[in-house]
Write a protein that binds this DNA or RNA. Structure first.
Lengths: 386, 386
DNA sequence: CCTATTGCTTCCGTAGCAAAATAAAAAATG
DNA sequence: CATTTTTTATTTTGCTACGGAAGCAATAGG
């Protein structure tokens, strides 16, 4: 199966488009593919033939799946052989490495985490090698590794700069390739998550798609025509200068009243501690706010209004078809949804389309999965530019 | 010349791409065209041949133009015969119709305005007919008419709704076609201005381009990949709910502290009048502010900070390569540029790319020119979807 | 006069579409 | 119930447009 997979690589642009469409949008018949890709039926026949012969696609019996009885010749759905290759994804945080193994479809089939003793490149590469070895025992023939971390990367390989690791110009891709013998893709963690959502998640098939992540920091990305718009700010931390409320709180991070000050987990905890003296966890703060405890309620309510304002501004100015809220800090939405909606309403024209907002609480394995998706994109289908 | 022009219409997609590139980016050699359009040299030869034979393109002698002496066979620039067709553009305001005649390149060759007695569709159509007749006398063989107005239009023909004219579902395109015998294109005025800037102005060749207009109201448009992103808000007035400063002034239009309240000409005049009792013109207010008169200075300074904040938010969230400020109300920029820049800086990451901001004071003839460009796009080159 | 360089043209193989042909099922008809 | 018609899916078949390679054209520099 693995040797066969090697013959996938040289895909023509047309073949790649077909493969990606089937990969990201479940089983599809040839005629459905023709409609989605704006190809003629004839071209689809021509393009799918070699893909089926090479084993990347298979004709699946629809039978039970299609409940609806339609007229005409029944379609013959094509599907990708998702189990044929496995990918590893890692997310590196300050104190842990989170790892997952996924299929071609990015379904997670295994998880494995490890605490970090130190942040030296060598130590971290060692941990990655150990985890990869353990994964390899359970899933022989791994196809490649994706690594996501907070910071800037270039060429899908070198970490230019990562503040929380205190790294500069670390050729992480090469180091891990040398130790594991597997191809490696390195990327900023938000970029990786965005790619995953863009191919397999909330952004599937959309032309304009925005992602806002809330966690230790703020992340933002705009995907247009399937490509994330790259900016000079990537990886240096968004939101420190998004002044949502000039009279807002001043915190150790970010400008007064900035998105970072108002919304990130450390700064919400800081605000509550400054006001009450208690050092509470984010979850405790949310619980207290939901119960109506005044100080946490005030902080959470202000955060909710800030979030709603930001969402409205993104909708007003970037005009995405959908906005995805992700990260560990979106628990806020469960507790304070009305305040968020109220703030969106106040900052948006009543005749404008309602904001298509989706919330996805992401744990660290979701970030690791994003890195695995990047590996899938780059290693299997090739040609996805940085 | 005009009969010949009729043979232009059936352009293949490739031919159209070549024609548009030459039209919007001056004379270009075949090899330059190949580079810009990502075509092979052979294809360019094939595509240009019929365009030259039909008379749309001509080979121009470069000789003097190319000062630089290069090696190799000299290139043979191709240019479009801009003078071969004339287009009419109209901008309808509450009390005037502004008209222009342009070449294919959208250069204005004549202007003609007329005050409006009433706002009935019939009356306005009459005025448009009269102006068109006068233009036709000077430039026989006009190719078509573009009309821009504040409001919503569909199918480039029917005005769904225009608040300032109190129109609903007026088939303006058909009415004017019946009276003038010329093909007519009707569009929202901001959309028309954006198309003009996108083809011939600040947005030429850019992939992501934002336009913010300030005048009687606020206009906003985002152009991605050469196409303006359409929204449900188009034509109903942007900025009434863009709350820039929750503690800002309350005015007859817009929410408290909204972009409309802070920035539009009528609301700036209202603020100054409310504070000083004097009914000053916008220009007078700018002059007084520049001279340091306290009340106008306060209002203009607050407007400048609001504008800077908006520009920063657009840059942060929509990530355009350039932002164009246009409209009658951008005189603000001359008087209060430092305050605007300061506000941009305060709302944007210091490591982000500097905002590529261009200001263009637009009079009503520029709006009319925009409408003419729309006519060029739709009538001559065809196939530019709404 | 020769070579290098750049621009344009010619020619051929391929990838795409459109339309016709074929396939397979449901619905209509006698 | 058998047969025809309709509908939808796929394959086959010409035709067209594009890219690539080779060739021709026109200039600069030696």
């Amino acid at each position: 199966m693995t040797t066969l997979a090697a013959s996938w690589l040289p895909l023509s642009p047309g073949e790649r488009a077909v493969a990606i469409e089937v990969l990201t949008h479940g089983p599809l018949s040839r005629s459905e593919l023709a409609r989605r890709l704006d190809l003629s039926a004839g071209s689809v026949t021509r393009l799918t033939k070699p893909l089926i012969e090479s084993g990347l696609l298979v004709e699946v019996a629809d039978g039970a799946t299609l409940a609806e009885v339609r007229q005409g010749r029944p379609s013959q759905p094509l599907d990708i052989v998702a189990e044929s290759r496995r990918f590893v994804g890692f997310k590196i945080t300050q104190d842990m490495v989170y790892g997952v193994v996924t299929t071609l479809r990015s379904d997670i089939v295994a998880r494995r985490d490890r605490p970090l003793a130190g942040l030296d490149p060598d130590e971290i590469v060692d941990v990655l090698r150990e985890l990869t070895d353990e994964f390899e025992r359970d899933f022989p023939g791994l196809a490649g590794i994706g690594i996501g971390l907070g910071g800037r990367a270039h060429d899908r390989s070198v970490v230019d700069e990562s503040a929380f690791l205190d790294w500069h110009d670390v050729p992480l891709g090469r180091l891990v390739e040398e130790r594991t013998g597997l191809p490696v893709v390195v990327e900023n963690d938000v970029a990786a998550l965005v790619e995953a959502e863009s191919w397999f998640g909330a952004g599937r098939g959309l032309d304009r798609f925005a992602v806002l992540t809330i966690g230790a920091g703020i992340g933002y990305a705009l995907v247009i025509g399937g490509k994330r718009v790259a900016t000079a700010e990537d990886g240096v931390g968004y939101g420190r200068f998004w002044i949502v409320n000039p009279n807002g709180p001043l915190t150790p991070d970010g400008q007064r009243g900035s998105a970072v000050s108002l919304l990130t987990i450390p700064n919400i905890r800081y605000q509550v501690q400054a006001a009450t003296g208690q050092d509470l966890s984010y979850e405790e703060i949310l619980t207290l706010a939901a119960a109506g405890d005044p100080m946490p309620s005030r902080v959470i309510d202000e955060a909710a209004r800030a979030l709603g304002t930001l969402v409205a501004q993104i909708a007003n100015f970037a005009m995405p078809q959908k906005i995805l809220l992700a990260g560990e800090g979106v628990g806020l939405v469960d507790v304070a949804a009305p305040a968020i909606e109220e703030a969106i309403r106040a900052n948006r024209h009543p005749r404008a389309e309602p904001v298509n907002l989706e919330t996805k609480v992401s744990d660290f394995h979701d970030w690791a999965r994003g890195a695995a998706v990047l590996a899938i994109q780059v290693l299997v289908l090739g040609g996805v530019e940085a």
